[in-house]
């Protein structure tokens, strides 16, 4: 039930809602729980609301870190 969908913001409306896309499916979500979103940003969507931003740079950094961990642990 806590399912979150990592969706891309396509446009942000004046009323604060945003049009998002995930694998070609588009729908409107609320953005009042997240700060400054702009087209191109990724957000986690849950029950019709963006609940948090997805920080792509950190996501990549974690993967890089695990390359080193895997070398050390295997």
């Amino acid at each position: 039930m806590c399912l979150g969908i990592p969706a891309k913001i396509l446009e942000v409306n004046v009323d604060g809602s945003a049009l998002v896309d995930y694998m070609g499916v588009r729908w409107r979500v609320g953005t009042s729980l997240v700060e400054h979103v702009a087209p191109g940003d990724y957000v986690m969507v849950h029950a019709g609301e963006a609940i948090e931003r997805v920080d792509l740079a950190t996501g990549k950094e974690v993967l890089r870190m695990w390359e080193d961990i895997l070398k050390a642990w295997t």
Partner: peptide, 15 residues
């Protein structure tokens, strides 16, 4: 934030 990194690529990387 993230700049050139594409979200779809990141999702793929985690899969």
């Amino acid at each position: 934030m993230g700049g050139h990194i594409k979200g779809v690529d990141l999702i793929d990387a985690y899969r």
